[in-house]
Design a protein around this nucleic acid. Structure first.
Length: 830
DNA sequence: GAGCACTGC
């Protein structure tokens, strides 16, 4: 059922001299191309500078099981196996109890051992492989290691394997990832490298993973890849993470809220020392602020500011430093150009008094030439258009172009322009194929970026920042960077999210630029001036400083953090933001007056929902509401992207309006969502056909059904539902036949009352002038045009989303009676 | 009569 599309790879056959790799190998690495002086003391066994040993997978679907690209090592000219094989043999001598009474050393199935042996040379050619001993040594004396390694260094796959044989590593190693696909594909890769089956395929499986909707860890799992959210979930049951000897936190530079929480918890854990054995922590990052991380983990209250952290003495760091010294700033993330094979005498470093080691691992990256605009542009879409055709006419094939834009609108506008101009190109000029790429794009359209272009055609990928982290576009040698990003920012005082176009940070600019140098030397056209670049913020504001903190605080409270104001945050949010979030949790009834987590709060914290939606769910389970299954359907829809397909042409829009009329409910968007889920779930013949007929997104509905199932299970575990309710029931009435009198109106009323309990702050009343103003805060809000209530005048509304774009909009809107709003505001003490 | 970058439990 779930189709897995493996994007084409050359795999690791030792037949290396394929065209793509030879051309790459002939190109010198960055530093050499720049004519930098550097010593070479390890040239003979230097792995070639083939860049991009892709350790991260490419995935553009939120349903990870559908399309997974394997991470792959594509290095060439492998050395024979030596070290790693020994390590693996040592491991297999472990005296773990034989599973199912079988001999403790069952021979590996031949296909597994063959694959493992075939992969070994590629592992050994990874830049990180030479650091294995020093990484082990660092962790045998210190509990924390900060490891900076660029893309392609192999850190995500190799570090856990380095540590597995260490005497302190008796239990499991956890490796966290920000995205599900990455966790799954890395686990698959490491299982292959270790000659193990994956997950629960066999009791002997040593490698597993755990992501939402998919837990694949066996009884003997020693290496477990999990999403950050999953590790936090495990901490709910086991705050000390006793099943792990080490936690490896990967991709820390992305600075998700969850990663910040994990770092805080790990630091607290080490400091409090409640565990019998020390918890080893490896923090891995591409462009981390190493000094900040060292200070964070090494703080001996008081001397934080004066501890001098020496940088690791590798070539990589030196080259980064020398570039800085030249006053040009870093040309690439982290290291500048790094030549592989230079083995430093010591490559991990720590102050004797410090509890933290650091290590820098070089990556594999080609030089990227940067071109700035001489003058600032007013219209980056137009400037991008010019740059695209300038590149296309001037630069030889092959070499695709990746353009970073802000949103669907700019992507589609530029797509039209490019196609228009491309029609006017003379004969003999290579063709242009413009491909849009953004998250809301249907699956098959996203897939196109992985397909090779027809002959004599240059691909131009017009992308949002999905291409910065989540999707690796192959074949790119030219990057056009608008310098802008659409970013969400939570405004504390108004309690609303704003979604605005802003300049990117310098680190994001470097990240985008790096995309041009993954396969060959490249060029980056920045659609701003060099002065503009210099004036950019050095790094993107971490999410925790620009989001609603109520979910994070509830997470902390539920894991035993009493004093959240003094939680060790890598970047402490302003006190005002923390207090605002505490107040919100108090109003939801998730905290008691004394600031302890309440019974309701504990329930909410166990649900994969925001605190507000969790509160709505808990409310719906109360006997006087009795509408839990309906609310689960609605909440499931609110947890995914828009379930209604966006349409472009006027004709299609009218057609869709007509087809959806039977779904639209006058009570508002929430009842409309409920009707849609229930019709979909009742559909017995072909659900896909049904979605097409009603202009509903089939993919979104599949996600809705997954979440619905999970929420029903959660509710059974929390004793909010009897266990019979999860059994493939599509009807929401607990017993339809016995309750025919439960009128539609009373059911609707229960649902709306439940929504109000969570969204009491998101209520507004109609003013005499026809506008709506919030009851708390007296803010003007407009009903978003996507709402079924758009243009309608009702006495009061409750809405599940409050966003500022051009003005304040309420999205996900239902009509309610004003006196209901009064009641609920009284209850929350507003 | 507007238009929502991206993750995740």
């Amino acid at each position: 059922m779930p189709e897995r599309v493996l994007t084409k790879f050359e795999d690791d056959k030792p037949t290396v001299n394929k065209t793509t790799t030879t051309s790459a190998a002939q190109n010198p690495p960055v530093a050499l191309a720049k004519g930098k002086k550097r010593k070479r003391n390890g040239t003979t066994n230097t792995p070639t500078n083939k860049p991009d040993t892709t350790t991260q997978s490419i995935e553009v679907d939120s349903r990870p099981e559908k399309r997974i690209e394997e991470p792959e090592s594509k290095s060439q000219l492998p050395r024979p196996a030596t070290n790693g094989a020994k390590q693996l043999h040592n491991r297999s001598k472990s005296n773990r109890p034989p599973p199912n009474g079988r001999p403790s050393n069952p021979p590996l199935p031949p296909h597994l051992s063959k694959r493992r042996d075939a992969l070994l040379p590629f592992r050994q050619a990874l830049p990180i492989y030479q650091h294995a001993d020093s990484i082990r040594a660092a962790l045998s004396t210190k509990n924390t290691l900060i490891l900076t390694g660029e893309t392609g260094s192999g850190k995500s796959t190799q570090v856990p394997q380095f540590l597995l044989s260490q005497p302190w590593c008796k239990k499991c190693i956890a490796i966290t990832q920000p995205r599900r696909v990455a966790a799954i594909s890395l686990a698959r890769r490491v299982a292959e490298e270790m000659g193990s089956s994956l997950g629960n395929a066999s009791p002997a499986s040593k490698v597993g993973y755990s992501v939402r909707f998919d837990n694949a860890a066996g009884p003997n799992t020693r290496v477990k890849f999990l999403t950050e959210g999953m590790l936090l979930q495990e901490m709910l049951r086991d705050p000390e993470l006793k099943q792990y000897s080490a936690v490896v936190v990967d991709e820390v530079h992305e600075r998700s809220v969850n990663v910040d929480l994990i770092l805080g918890f790990l630091k607290k854990m080490q400091k409090e020392g409640k565990r019998k054995d020390a918890m080893k922590v490896v923090v891995m990052s591409a462009t981390a602020d190493v000094e900040g991380l060292v200070k964070f983990f090494d703080d001996e209250e008081g001397d934080i500011g004066c501890k001098k952290i020496e940088r690791v003495q590798t070539d990589g760091v030196q080259s980064a430093e020398s570039e800085k010294a030249k006053g040009k700033g870093k040309q690439k993330s982290g290291s500048g150009g790094v030549e592989n094979g230079v083995v430093p005498v010591t490559d991990t470093k720590s102050e004797p008094s410090s509890t933290v080691s650091t290590c820098f691992v070089e990556g594999r990256q080609y030089p990227v030439k940067t071109i700035y605009l001489p003058e600032p542009t007013q219209d980056f879409v137009e400037s991008a258009l010019k740059s695209i055709f300038q590149i296309h006419y001037k630069e030889p094939m092959p070499g695709d172009i990746l353009v970073f834009l802000t949103g669907q609108d700019t992507v589609e506008a530029l797509e039209r322009l490019v196609n228009e101009y491309a029609q006017g190109m003379e004969e003999g000029v290579p063709k242009i194929l413009a491909l849009p790429l953004f998250a809301a794009l249907p699956q098959h359209a996203q897939q196109k970026i992985f397909q090779p272009a027809p002959s004599k055609t240059r691909k131009v990928i017009l992308a949002t920042n999905i291409a910065e982290t989540s999707v690796t576009v192959p074949g790119v040698r030219f990057v056009v960077d608008s310098g802008k990003v659409k970013i969400k920012h939570f405004r504390n005082r108004l309690g609303l999210d704003s979604l605005l176009v802003k300049p990117i940070s310098r680190s994001a600019a470097i990240q985008r630029q790096g995309r041009a140098g993954r396969e060959a030397p490249g060029q980056c056209y920045r659609l701003y001036t060099e002065q503009d670049y210099a004036s950019l913020e050095p790094r993107t504001t971490p999410e925790i400083l620009r989001c609603d903190l109520s979910a994070a605080l509830l997470t902390m409270k539920a894991r035993g953090v009493e004093d959240v104001l003094n939680f060790p945050f890598l970047d402490p949010p302003p006190r005002e933001a923390l207090e605002k979030a505490l107040l919100q949790l108090l109003q939801l009834g998730a905290l008691t007056e004394t600031g302890e987590i309440s019974e309701i709060g504990l329930k909410i914290s166990k649900l994969p929902l925001t605190p507000t939606l969790g509160r709505v769910l808990v409310e719906a389970a109360r006997p006087e509401r009795d509408c839990l299954l309906d609310i689960i359907d609605i909440i499931s829809c609110l947890s995914v992207e828009n379930i209604f397909v966006n349409l472009v042409t006027e004709e299609k829009k009218e057609e869709a309006e007509a087809a959806r009329r039977e779904l639209y409910k006058r009570e508002g968007d929430h009842m409309t969502l409920l009707t849609t889920v229930q019709r979909y779930a009742e559909e017995r013949s072909d659900r896909k056909v049904w979605t097409e007929k009603h202009f509903v997104s089939h993919r979104a509905m599949q996600n809705v059904m997954d979440i619905r199932k999970q929420l029903r299970q959660n509710c059974v575990q929390l004793s909010l539902l009897p266990s019979s309710s999860t059994a493939h029931s599509n009807s929401n009435s607990t017993d339809p036949s016995s309750n025919p009198s439960a009128s539609h109106d009373s059911r609707t009323r229960s649902i709306l009352h439940s929504l109000l309990r969570g969204f009491a702050a998101n209520t507004a009343r109609l003013m005499p002038d026809g506008s709506y103003r919030t009851l708390l805060g007296n803010q003007t809000v407009a009903i978003h045009p996507s709402s079924v209530l758009f243009g309608r005048k009702v006495e009061a509304i409750v809405f599940s989303e409050f966003v500022f774009t051009n003005k304040s909009y309420a999205r996900g809107v239902s009509a309610v009676q004003l006196d209901w709003v009064g009641e609920v505001l009284e209850e929350v003490g507003g």
